[in-house]
Design a protein around this nucleic acid. Structure first.
Lengths: 359, 359
DNA sequence: ATGAAAGCGCTAACAT
DNA sequence: ATGTTAGCGCTTTCAT
């Protein structure tokens, strides 16, 4: 037993045998105690816990995983960390996972790069994750194929896959977009444009379609020129607004496929010498933390990260428990719904009476 | 039941024995091949790789970790995911780690909550991480003690700890802050304020001290009233500017302890009906991705996430290799330096007095 | 209710 | 250069 400075060092790492010896029980009893098996008497359990505490013992998860076949790790794949939506989502997912005794393995590599994708899948497989949340919002075909081959439980957004191991989270964009359009109409807008996400992204298409349908239902005209494909980035928003400025006839309000695009628009409007919301009303989608602090504060359609993370985790946990327990045979929940709500802030106002964008 | 009797089907997950059987070699040869041991003949190695590919085999990291004592996981602890600096930092760290065959275990729990802290340390210990990067920038005493007890290799920022297992990353704030002050002076400013971070944070104090020293060196007066303690958040920036507005005599330029504070100031200035940079020049610190897209684009002192992540990873890897290899005895690098540079954008300009401004 | 013992899939010592 | 074998620390039958 050595001592170093003021800090006492643990002599050597205790294992389950050390604990068993100190508690004067078998290692099986220690294992049962750790795993809260009801088959341990209070008396022994207490002795074991005391020994564990005294030795500062932590079970080795690698050994546990190896023998039990359960790693207690979920993978989570996102495309792009530069959009704060994803860190926020991961953070929520992590919190829920940890609260449930799970660890997460994050992969944020570019899904469209074949080599990176293979590496990402490989990491998941090697670490023996029990399931993967593919939160790339619709650019996941390739990763899906690779994972599905290995019979991996998966949860993804937007669309259904006919595989009992794959669950789906449906995002109710319509509700939020409907509220957004209604909000604009109430303010007096009828000339409403939409800055869409990349058409290669399922979710971007779904959002656009929800907008179009809402417009039709609201008896509002959808100008083709006012629907512009952007790429869900700040720069994309700037570029999208640029295209709009080149038009002769322009909308008085703009709904953006995500907040990053909307924030880019905010900036581009400012650089153009115009003002939000006086000259143009802008609505985002996501409600990232920053949205509250833009100039002006962004009116946006909230897509709850917590709800989404919860749904993803539940889906995966159901699958994992199901796989682990042969008793529970089939009918597990494989579809989850996440709602959206409008959050009104300062980037929307009635349209200018006299002048509009062509001031 | 016999050990591996009916394990002939390709459908069930292949293990090292399956590969060995198919390649007609021993499992040791398979293991050596996987680990690129030079002691395997090309001929056998090729047979093994072929079998691996054919079977779609992935080694089980839990088994590897268990027997080798090397988990190939590094922990990373950050305080607060709402500041984009940290996701960006984690992302860089992850990329470097993965490129080097490591996985990362992120913990973003609140370090000041004792229970959360214990949980976080426990996770690191249970998953047997080989080292932990404590990137909380100076509020880490408690986590440090808990980890150090377990003789865990650690890397942290700002300050030295007299422990061979603990490495330090020194951040050269002075360089960047010096450049920032020089930039302001050149523009004609002499009335420069500083929105500091929380005084409980080592890095915040270091930043403030660097500012004060730079001011003295530049023969500029440091007004006590112009040094305001904020909390490194957007809201903190808003509040900090509010305090400044209550002063009779105000600075014409403001350096903020981080970008979030600066962005908060940008917003508060706008809400107060004033303008950046005409009425107030603002400089941030970090250069988060968003800084380029604020209104106006933020002049800021860049603290490279990539450099920082690289330093943290290297420090940990040195320690891990050192621990694993008894041959390499002592003198490993335990100090790393990360530089800062000024990035001039649109939030700085000559002070109003020097310009011919209308109204 | 408790313990003894058999591995989980792999690496590393030791043999050859 | 290749194979044999003994565990890594734990969970889980199977006995008792």
């Amino acid at each position: 037993m050595s001592r170093k400075g003021s800090r006492t060092t643990v002599s050597s790492k205790p294992d389950i045998r050390t604990v068993a010896a100190l508690a004067k029980v078998s290692i099986a009893t220690v294992s049962r105690t750790i795993n809260s098996s009801p088959a341990v008497s209070d008396k022994l359990a207490q002795r074991v816990w005391q020994a564990i505490e005294q030795l500062n013992y932590f079970p080795n998860t690698h050994a546990r995983s190896l023998v039990s076949g359960r790693s207690r790790i979920f993978g989570i794949i996102v495309e792009n960390m530069t959009n704060p939506f994803f860190p926020e989502l991961i953070s929520s997912f992590e919190e829920i996972a940890v609260a449930n005794g799970y660890e997460i393995l994050v992969s944020s590599t570019n899904i469209n790069s074949a080599s990176q994708l293979t590496g990402c899948v490989r990491r998941m497989l090697e670490r023996k994750v029990e399931g993967v949340a593919v939160l790339t919002f619709g650019s996941e075909e390739s990763v899906l194929d690779q994972l599905a081959v290995h019979n991996m439980p998966i949860v993804l957004c937007e669309f259904h896959v006919d595989d009992p191991k794959i669950s789906t989270i449906l995002l109710d964009y319509s509700a939020g977009i409907h509220a957004a359009v209604a909000h604009l109409v109430k303010l007096g807008h009828s000339r409403i444009g939409f800055l869409a996400g990349p058409h290669t992204l399922h979710s971007a298409i779904t959002r656009l379609e929800a907008f179009q349908q809402t417009m039709v239902e609201s008896n509002l005209e959808v100008h083709k020129n006012w629907i512009i494909e952007c790429d869900h980035t700040l720069k994309g928003g700037v570029a999208g607004f640029g295209k709009l400025m080149n038009l002769e006839s322009r909308p008085t309000a703009l709904i953006c496929s995500n907040d990053m695009t909307a924030i880019g628009v905010l900036r581009a409007v400012y650089m153009a010498g115009l003002r939000v919301p006086e000259d143009l009303s802008v609505i985002g989608l996501d409600d990232i933390d920053f949205a509250e602090f833009t100039l002006p504060p962004l009116t946006t359609i909230r897509l709850s990260r917590v709800e989404l993370a919860r749904a993803a985790f539940d889906a995966l946990l159901f699958q994992a428990e199901n796989s682990a327990n042969p008793a529970a045979p089939s009918a597990i929940q494989r579809e989850f719904l996440v709602s959206t709500t409008l959050v009104v802030r300062g980037s929307t106002a009635p349209p200018a009476e006299e002048k509009n964008l062509q001031g």
